[in-house]
Design a binder for these strands. Structure first.
Length: 415
DNA sequence: TCTGGGGTCCTAGGACCC
DNA sequence: TCTGGGGTCCTAGGACCC
């Protein structure tokens, strides 16, 4: 069994852009970008001009003057992404969703029902095309790493099967940046050492690779280059942190700016945590200055927190520390809060003394006055009437303004 | 007019304990 | 007074992924 290619990696092509072209036939065959200030997704027609996700809208327009910017149908993205993953789920319970538009599946145990993995892959592609109207690429291989690379090679709208007998031949001619874990920095380091293909990386002595990219990354990349991938399908993984961030443009580093912004971020995180009965011990704040250089400050508390007001107060204290440490910085461009070391909360939240002044936070600071009841009441109102009904939700809408609220929710991982 | 948002994991140094 | 090593936790920063 282990020598058979039973892992599928399915990846919807240019997902948001494809949905827009599905919903509006006039957009089909044309270069389009979802987003505005920043490109969230580009159609293949736009990619031909060099436009890609994450690119500033202005640069995209320079590359492709006829580029059409379209508004996001965020609810449709969620609906169609869910539907595509459900198609995979029709053939095996072993589905690991990676993001809104991407998932692994292991069909080892269901061949007697649906035929060999290649047949399942063809069926999935056919059904997603016919039932949802979307192109999806699928890679089939013996490991997750090979299946993922195969689906990338298959794009757009293709199917690639890696025969277990030909894995090394398939892998070794490909460029290193197709590997999981090789981003721009590592790609450049490897290029500087004359390494461009996975085969060249495999030939490199392990020690040399570790000197280039560090111990852990070196070991992982070496194993992958030699086609050793120990990862298995994991159907549900617990979240390790929950965070929120907001780009602010360029604003004064002043309390009347960061205080309401932090309130809003704390509110988003707090309500997500409470919805899953989670709380976290460590609060991390990130402040990005006008020159895009960023610093972080963290504090591990004496009790896990999920209350909006507590999160906001801790975050404000940490940001004040940043301001004290960087008095020369006059403007900020982004604020972020993250809560980690999460744990499941018992039903009752204890009332604890609050000890936060202007002095720096120290590990073990006792903190966590309840405010649980008020937060839960607010959460309940929102469950019925929506996020905007109550609270800090609208405070930052005019200030933040970069990305629609709905897009944030798409990016949220299940906690 | 610069440059989104939500995550995971690793490294390195210091504190602290044994 | 000086020397020492291992283990763990914490913080800050960075690379990477979608």
């Amino acid at each position: 069994m282990e020598n058979e290619a039973t892992i599928l990696h399915a990846d919807l092509d240019a997902f948001y852009a494809s949905v827009e072209q599905l919903l509006n036939p006039e957009l089909r065959g044309k270069p389009i970008a979802v987003g505005g200030g920043v490109v969230l997704a580009a159609s293949y027609e736009a990619k031909a001009f060099g436009v890609h996700g994450g690119m500033p809208g202005r640069k995209a327009r320079e590359l492709c003057p006829q580029l059409l910017f379209v508004g996001g149908h965020f609810e449709d993205y969620q609906r169609l992404g869910d539907a595509a993953i459900r198609v995979l789920g029709d053939y095996t319970p072993l589905v690991e969703r990676i993001s809104i538009d991407e998932a692994f599946a292991d069909v080892a145990g269901t061949a007697h029902l649906f035929g060999p993995p290649v047949d399942v892959a063809r069926l999935v592609r056919k059904r997603v095309r016919e039932e949802l109207g979307l192109p999806i690429s699928v890679g089939v291989a013996r490991t997750k790493h090979l299946a993922k690379i195969a689906s990338q090679v298959a794009k757009p709208d293709g199917l690639v099967v890696v025969d277990p007998a030909g894995e090394i031949a398939f892998l070794h001619d490909l460029p290193v940046e197709l590997m999981w874990g090789v981003g721009p920095v590592t790609r450049q380091k490897l290029a500087d050492a004359g390494i461009r293909t996975i085969g060249q990386m495999a030939e490199l002595p392990g020690k040399s690779l570790e000197r280039l990219v560090g111990h852990a990354a070196g070991e992982k990349l070496s194993a992958l280059a030699w086609n050793q991938d120990p990862r298995v399908i994991e159907t549900h993984q617990r979240a390790r942190s929950a965070g929120a961030q907001s780009a602010l443009g360029r604003r004064p580093f002043a309390e009347h700016i960061y205080r309401p912004a932090l309130r809003h971020l704390a509110d988003r995180i707090g309500s997500r945590l409470r919805a899953k009965a989670l709380a976290g011990w460590t609060v991390t704040v990130r402040v990005r200055f006008a020159d895009m250089h960023a610093v972080t400050r963290a504090a591990t508390l004496g009790a896990p927190v999920a209350a909006t007001a507590i999160l906001a107060e801790v975050a404000e204290t940490l940001v004040r520390q940043v301001r004290r440490d960087h008095p020369e910085e006059r403007a900020i461009s982004l604020l972020a809060i993250s809560v980690s070391h999460l744990e499941k909360q018992p039903l009752l939240q204890l009332e604890l003394p609050l000890g936060l002044g202007d002095e720096p936070l120290r590990p073990g600071t006792r903190i966590g006055r309840g405010r649980w009841t008020a937060d839960r009441a607010m959460d309940a109102v929102r469950d019925r009437f929506g996020w905007e009904a109550i609270g800090y939700g609208s405070v930052m809408l005019e200030a933040g303004r970069s990305v629609p609220e709905a897009f944030r929710e798409l990016a949220e991982k299940d906690l």
